[in-house]
Design a binder for these strands. Structure first.
Lengths: 352, 352
DNA sequence: ACAATTTATGAAATCGATTTCAAAATATTA
DNA sequence: TAATATTTTGAAATCGATTTCATAAATTGT
């Protein structure tokens, strides 16, 4: 496309018979300009359909009013909601977001960081990929004096702001709810424990069982599954055993759905003979039959908090204090049909 | 944060005892540089952790290698998938995406376009907000010599590339399927008809009925509902009438879900006494009970096609030909429980 | 009315990569 | 070997907004 010359401040200046520097100041409401002139300049700018050239300003000022976001997958409910939250706040402050997907891949994550640095972004908000076990690339962000906010899946060893759910407590409360409903042999299907979120959820599960003096179910084996099909396979196996679990706490709603499907196949009644509690509170959870109890992560709120942290705390702090702190977003336990039974099935207690 | 001076090509140049211009060329593999020197320069760049300054290059070259995307809502499945598709292709070409939400709001859409122009984006991909009935802001994109690709919700009157589903045909096929299943009084719950997609779906519905010589059900009234609750209200009303519909074709899966819930409340059996066909094929549609038949829009493919259109067609065409064409992405009819009954309930035919 | 102060305005430098054009170095040919 | 062609290399201009600093204009005080 043959670019016709863009209108610049100098074009405005020439038209108005003043200097480019004055135009720049007028457009920015600089105190050394009069109200009358500002009006005049802005009027002319509108008239000629002048568009501020962000690249030029960036180059001069060294910042871009852009926040870079890196997530494993844009179109996963959780991340899509976080991003929506960030965008909502950013647009208020006239900031923009550039989004990158790591696709759970460390190499892509590194590339994303690299290009965001090149773009002069003012801040990078990241949720780590499943493959990320090193942190050199995160340190590179700091080395380039770019603010860093990690959310959800984070590396605590890197000095940065952190926003995450109270995964352990949420899991603890969820499992305690299952216990109150009279479930006794509660199994867990989790995610890879080298990710903080899954480790925390598992830990919350364990602590709830320990507190209730329940035995840990099948503790020797880590049941790892986040997808529906994988979880279904595991559930089918466990539910066919002699000492089968009477409840499942999973680290995703997809996995919980797999459990429900397995139970249906085996004609096990939910919630009477099997309790199911998911994590994430996907949209479908309140629709499916039986409704799935789950733990809502307030995903959009995570995005809003991250953005507010940037605008209200980081940008305000001219003086560089410690660039780290952790903000916890509380999860909400959504009790629905799949885990709610009024009367405990029977009153037997596993020997302690 | 007190920015320490960034490493520039001149720093590399000084270290190597050569000029900045040579460094620039070497980094870009310009033919006037030797392989040996390129190696040397790149080596030093790595050593000093040099980061290319995109703003500076943008300013000089007048393009940004950024594609701007404007959608009503980032975290709606359809749009999230489209964006994921675009990002996937862009990252291959080392392009980036800036995402804006219009939130179904014309004013925000205009603002988004304005800032994307200011950012020097190379292309804008947009799906229009519900409020958008004017096109001056779209023309502004063209006036600024920025390539324009509209997808899904488009304004055909603006000269641009267009990518959309075969909404009319998909609706036609879907309704024809309902007719084949023996449903006779098929109602439609659609979206606002000033949006092309909803007008097209309604038209497909009408044509299928006309072809089958069915009477249009309740044609005088436009049933507009995209959300679950609104659709449920409408469905409850219609299903309580004497001459109630025996099938619903809705323009969203959410609405279809509302219909299912209404049917459950009224103890109407699906699919025996009521057929339901949605549109969009949301993730939950294959989970809920009964499984919801729907029309899959290949949303990610729309994004992939849009991005490929940009890279393979638009960028290649140095010579500006007509900057418009329409690409159709075929929908896929997903027949599931909610519309599938082997034997038609009874063999009566509405008088013609 | 004149000096002192304040306010309004513009010239020029700057940010960092790209690119043009000319000069220097090298290779090729007669 | 001298003349010509080719390849390397760098100086300087450029993109457009911002910002510093100096100067011009207006205002104030005496």
């Amino acid at each position: 496309m043959n670019k016709t010359k863009r209108i610049t401040i100098y074009d405005l200046a020439k038209e108005l018979g003043i200097s480019g520097s004055y135009v720049s100041r007028a457009l920015n409401d600089h105190p050394t300009t009069s109200e009358k002139m500002r009006e005049m300049v802005k009027q002319k700018a509108k008239e000629l359909n002048y568009k501020h050239n962000t690249s030029a300003a960036n180059l001069r000022q060294g910042n871009s009013k852009i926040i870079g976001i890196i997530v494993p997958k844009i179109n996963e409910t959780f991340f899509a909601n976080v991003i929506a939250g960030i965008e909502e706040i950013c647009s208020k402050y006239k900031y923009h977001i550039i989004i990158c997907q790591s696709e759970e891949n460390l190499k892509k994550e590194k590339e994303a960081i690299d290009t965001l640095i090149k773009q002069n972004v003012d801040c990078i908000m990241i949720s780590l990929s499943q493959e990320t076990k090193t942190n050199a690339h995160l340190l590179d962000i700091l080395a380039n004096k770019i603010h860093l906010i990690q959310f959800d899946r984070v590396d605590e060893s890197v000095e940065s702001y952190i926003i995450k759910n109270d995964n352990k407590i949420a899991a603890f409360n969820g499992v305690e709810h299952l216990i109150k409903m009279g479930y006794e042999r509660i199994a867990h299907i989790g995610g890879p424990v080298y990710l903080n979120i899954y480790a925390d959820r598992k830990q919350g599960y364990r602590e709830a069982l320990l507190k209730a003096k329940h035995t840990l179910f099948d503790d020797e084996i880590d049941n790892i599954a986040l997808s529906r099909t994988d979880a279904k396979t595991i559930a089918l196996k466990l539910l066919s055993k002699q000492d089968r679990p009477d409840a499942f706490f999973t680290s995703s709603d997809q996995a919980a759905l797999g459990v429900i499907q397995a139970a249906k196949e085996l004609n096990i009644s939910i919630p009477k003979d099997l309790g199911v509690l998911g994590f994430q509170d996907e949209e479908f959870s309140s629709f499916i039959s039986p409704n799935l109890s789950s733990i809502n992560q307030q995903s959009k709120q995570i995005g809003i908090s991250a953005a507010n942290l940037f605008f209200k705390t980081i940008l305000k702090n001219k003086v560089k204090t410690t660039e780290s702190s952790t903000e916890i977003i509380n999860c909400e336990l959504m009790i629905r049909e799949s885990s709610y039974r009024k009367i405990a099935k029977k009153f037997t207690k596993t020997p302690e």
